[in-house]
């Protein structure tokens, strides 16, 4: 439901970076999203063409890496992969755990074409 507003925020970030990098096109956008971020990757991917229309990010490939839900036990110090609604230690079952992965909603990386690269190519032709 709120994926469109998240996606619009993503596009604004991409636009800022593209401008800083003097980019003319964005090829690929890499995200890392965890199940506990409250964002549904499929809905975000659906919202992307709509949110990016008319921006430099339009037409870019969206690659979403799903992060595993992991907790660190404060009792036995084990780090285990767990289910999103069962965040107790996978080793000893203690509930005094700290989440160390699975709530991310990160823009990790962007691949873009810089104006300088286009100019260089034009000179070669």
């Amino acid at each position: 439901m709120h994926e469109l507003s998240v996606c619009q925020a993503l596009i604004r970030q991409i636009e800022i970076i593209a401008e800083e990098q003097h980019a003319v096109d964005v090829k690929t956008v890499y995200l890392r999203i965890g199940p506990l971020s409250g964002i549904e990757p499929a809905l975000l991917a659906q919202a992307y063409p709509l949110a990016s229309a008319g921006s430099v990010a339009f037409g870019a490939e969206l690659r979403i890496e799903i992060a595993a839900v992991r907790v660190r036990c404060q009792h036995c110090h084990a780090e285990t992969e767990v289910l999103p609604n069962r965040l107790i230690c996978g080793e000893c079952g203690d509930w005094h755990t700290q989440l160390i992965g699975g709530d991310e909603m990160l823009l990790t990386r962007i691949e873009l074409v810089k104006r300088s690269a286009v100019l260089m190519e034009a000179q070669h032709v």
Binding site: T108, L112, V113
Partner: peptide, 27 residues
């Protein structure tokens, strides 16, 4: 942990920028 993302090989003319920014950082 993320070096593989930062220095991946690119297609000619394409540059990669590592961002690592929360999608809701504006909010």
């Amino acid at each position: 942990g993320n070096r593989h993302l930062a220095y991946a090989k690119n297609e000619l003319g394409v540059s990669a920028v590592t961002v690592l920014k929360n999608l809701l950082s504006e909010n």
